[in-house]
Simulated assay, not measured.
Amino acid sequence: MPGFSCGLDATLKVIAGKWKPLIIYFLLEAPNRYGELKRAVRGVSDKVLIQQLKELESDGIVVRTDYREVPPRVDYSLTALGRSLADALAPLSNWGAEHMEEVARVFAERDKWRRG
């Protein structure tokens, strides 16, 4: 078992990756099929989405259910551990919603500065 410097370190190891928190967010409401997740998590490639879903599954955050039907039907949902993680991420989501305009302005200024 890897050693963690603190609880935040453990959490960040689980949600590391640009898309994992968004995947968890979109699975909080209800199970989603792959295509639904792909549309919800805008900008993610198929390769990365599949990889991050597999990692979340192996970490016990997401469960993949294969219904063994034709045509194939598979969906993803949060485990109890995943739901508790989603609950912990909710305040971050709220902060982003409350400060979205300011954050957008800051990033726009940063982009201007980078362009020269």
Rank of each mutant, 00 (worst) to 15 (best):
R33C: 10
P31R: 02
R64E: 10
A30Y: 11
L28T: 05
A40V: 08
R42S: 07
G43A: 08
E55G: 03
I61N: 01
K38N: 05
R39C: 10
D66M: 14
D59I: 02
E57S: 14
E57R: 13
Q52F: 10
K47A: 04
L56W: 02
Q51D: 01
D66R: 14
R64G: 01
Y34G: 13
E36R: 11
T65E: 15
D66L: 12
R64C: 06
V62L: 08
V63F: 02
E36P: 12
V63Q: 03
I61G: 00
D46S: 11
E57N: 15
V62I: 03
V62Q: 06
L37W: 11
E55Y: 07
E36C: 06
R33F: 06
V41I: 09
Q52K: 11
D66W: 13
N32R: 15
E29S: 08
D66Q: 12
E55T: 04
E29D: 12
N32C: 14
L56M: 03
E36N: 05
Q52P: 09
P31Q: 03
V44R: 00
E29M: 09
L56T: 06
V48D: 02
L28N: 05
D59M: 07
Q51G: 02
D59E: 14
R39M: 10
D46G: 13
L28C: 03
R33W: 05
G43D: 09
G35A: 14
R64P: 06
V44L: 00
D66G: 14
L49H: 00
R33M: 14
E29C: 07
D66C: 12
D46H: 13
G60K: 00
R33I: 05
V48H: 07
G60L: 04
E29F: 13
K38R: 09
S45P: 08
V63S: 04
K47F: 08
E55A: 04
Y34Q: 15
V41T: 04
D66Y: 12
E36G: 11
Y34K: 11
G60I: 07
K47T: 07
N32F: 10
R39I: 10
R64Q: 02
D59K: 05
L37T: 00
E29P: 08
R33V: 15
D66I: 13
G35K: 05
I50S: 02
D46W: 11
N32L: 13
Y34A: 15
E57W: 14
D59Y: 09
L53M: 04
R42C: 01
V41Y: 07
G60Q: 06
E29R: 14
S45K: 06
I50P: 01
R42W: 09
V48W: 03
V44P: 00
Q52I: 12
V48R: 09
K47L: 07
E55D: 07
K47P: 01
L37P: 06
N32I: 12
K47I: 00
K54S: 10
G43K: 11
D59G: 10
E57A: 15
L28I: 00
D59R: 07
Q52H: 14
L53T: 03
N32Y: 11
A30L: 03
S58G: 13
Q52C: 06
A30P: 02
D59P: 05
D59S: 08
N32D: 08
L56H: 03
K54F: 06
P31G: 04
S45M: 07
R33Y: 06
V62N: 05
Q51H: 08
D46K: 14
E55W: 07
G43W: 08
L37C: 04
L28G: 05
S58A: 13
T65A: 13
E29W: 13
